[in-house]
């Protein structure tokens, strides 16, 4: 089986980024050879709606190119639950805001949402009295900020 095609299939299947070493294990080849294959594969996809990019040192992801994202809004489900997103919007608007205030607005379910958002590193908290003071993070800004004024971010995963 062609190593390049195995890697292509692996990137297609994976919902998130895949590391060079993972790909190397898949085809039983050293990382150096994986890099060569990746260069070829990235070139192959240049004229497609899909792109393969090196997101951070040695990690690759296959995703829809930014310009096509806006057509797919109704096809791919959102990665964040509506209720969690609503809690995040309340935190973003009222920040810095104490947890009890968020719970007052959103109800008891907000405790679970806050935990989830903290795990995703979209919000951070520091203790304040018996409650927590919540603010959005840099990751939150990166997530929603769009430098090209394109309202729809890339479709990944």
């Amino acid at each position: 089986m062609n190593d390049l095609r195995i890697i292509e299939a692996a990137l297609f299947t994976s919902a998130s980024s895949v590391s060079e070493s993972q790909l190397g294990k898949l085809i039983s080849k050293p990382v150096r050879q994986v890099r060569d294959i990746m260069d070829k594969l990235i070139l192959e996809y240049e004229d497609r709606a899909i792109e393969i990019i090196n997101i951070e040192d040695g990690k690759y992801v296959m995703q829809v190119k930014r310009e096509y994202g806006k057509y797919l809004k109704n096809l791919a489900p959102r990665e964040m639950d509506t209720q969690v997103l609503r809690t995040l919007s309340v935190i973003a608007y009222h920040q810095p805001v104490i947890q009890s205030k968020v719970v007052e607005i959103r109800g008891n379910k907000a405790y679970e949402h806050i935990k989830e958002l903290e795990a995703e590193k979209l919000i951070s908290s520091k203790p304040q009295g018996h409650s927590k003071l919540l603010t959005t993070t840099e990751k939150f800004v990166e997530y929603f900020w769009n430098e090209e004024d394109d309202k729809y971010s890339n479709t990944e995963g």
Partner: peptide, 11 residues
């Protein structure tokens, strides 16, 4: 199985 990120509009 694709999932897309949330947009600012949706937020």
């Amino acid at each position: 199985k694709s999932k897309r990120p949330v947009t600012l509009d949706e937020l």
